[in-house]
Amino acid sequence: MPFLTGLYAFLFYFAALVLVFGLTYKVVQYSRTPAPLKIPTTPAPTTGTGVVLRMTREVVLFESLFRGNKWTWIFGWLFHFGLFLVTLRHLRYFFNPVPAVIEFIQPFGIYAGFAMVVGLVGLWARRFLVDRVRYISRPADHLMLALLLLIAASGLLMSFLLHTDIVSVKTFFLGLYHFDLRPLPADPVLLLHLAMVAVLMIIFPYSKLLHAPGLFFSPTRNQVDDPRERRLLAPWASRLERP
């Protein structure tokens, strides 16, 4: 077994563990922390169905961001929608046989890669061009965009110029399911692409990427506006009720 294959196998096992456990930990932490008061940003839905709709609009359309800033919305949405399609497209490396839906979106996935890059470049440009956004940007914010851009660019490079042996790549990943290490092609671009993806998985639960699960737990967005009808009482607050 070549050294590289072993290294990457280890890297991906490690990254997958960190991602799954780290994210589970955060999600459990969020769901166990009570929201003791009704604080939806109003006007807010008065029913559970309404909240599901509001949340769906936030996740799919970035509704609030649309009201907040059109440029960030355009670039942000391009990037995320691109990322979403690209991720779906990549599922073909992890399933055998490949599900029909995934088969279907393959051609769109390519364009999605470009959308991602355009979005990321736009978002990064704002970090330099808009003084307010420049002021709030930390090194981590720039590095995050650099990381994603590197992933997207190396991916597109392999799609269009420096093709790699994707059959072997798929064999490598399917092999990981059974702890059966199959050789990974030693193309530098592929290795860079995969290493960066592993880094992304590792930092996910420890960085601002927590915005993805966070949105679902945001009380200003996920609460039903019914405080006069239903009494909300957090466990720690109910202890105050006893004299």
């Binding site: 955060k26 922390t33 009570p34 961001l65 307010r132 930390r138 966070g214 009380p219």
Partner: peptide, 22 residues
């Protein structure tokens, strides 16, 4: 942080998108 979910989630979630800055 253990009493208010809002505080915990909000301190984690900000991506520095800048939509709130103005």
């Amino acid at each position: 942080l253990t009493r208010y979910r809002s505080l915990r989630v909000y301190l984690d979630a900000c991506v520095k998108c800048g939509a709130c800055t103005d």
